[in-house]
Nucleic acid binder design. Structure first.
Lengths: 113, 113
DNA sequence: TCCATTCGCAACCTTTGGTTGCACATCAGC
DNA sequence: GCTGATGTGCAACCAAAGGTTGCGAATGGA
């Protein structure tokens, strides 16, 4: 059931900006709030807040290095998030398939009259 | 790329309450704001607002009938949403796989020394 | 007719995502 | 060792979204 999904993790990847941030971090192998904000339509501070959210659910880890703070994606946690996405998708898919089968059965019965 | 995803549809299913509403509507084959709110931890008015959001992106349709307003899931549109979910999941999966392969290659090189 | 039910609308509150402004720390060049 | 440029964090402030309560209007059943 999708109601049993860990909503914390889902809502972390539910935000479009955060999804793009994860994409960028994956593509570049890491980044800072400043480098991410240069490629996104929001300010550095907004990015920093999103990084806080992602960090709170363990999707990214930070490595302070001098005056920079390098963020990296936690691959295991992202894999968990992907699993949740496909679980919800699969559940809905199954329901849609069932509805489709029922509709077809009804149509067959009507044609047999 | 997940950045190209239709964010309207995503954010519609991004809310946990709205996902549970879709689940309930699918399971019961339809429902009203009142019947849904009886099974959810929010008030009827909150449910009505969510139904507006779902209706705006075409995920549900309404059929007025007397003093009731019956909502039904648009299966085609929900199928589109499911497709988007799995697209994002697949994109991340692909990136994670690539990273994993690279990591394994590096490890092999180190062992061969 | 009268009452209960279902609904929509409006006011209000809280959280969340976003911005600007500023102070603090660090690196690089002189 | 200074000094300026760069990267961060913190605080105040704003707008939108989700949620609530209260109320008035419409419909269905006794």
């Amino acid at each position: 059931m999708s109601a049993a999904v860990d909503d914390e993790l889902w809502s972390a990847v539910g935000d479009p900006i955060r999804r793009r941030m994860l994409d960028l971090l994956l593509a570049d192998g890491g980044g800072t709030a400043t480098t991410l904000s240069e490629r996104l339509p929001v300010t550095r501070q907004a990015v920093a807040k999103h990084l806080l959210v992602l960090g709170r659910v363990g999707l990214v880890h930070v490595t302070p290095s001098g005056r920079e703070r390098l963020y990296r994606v936690d691959e295991a946690q992202l894999a968990r998030a992907v699993a949740q996405l496909s679980a919800v998708g699969a559940a809905w898919d199954a329901r849609l398939q069932r509805i489709k089968r029922i509709a077809e059965a009804i149509q067959r019965r009507n044609q047999e009259r």
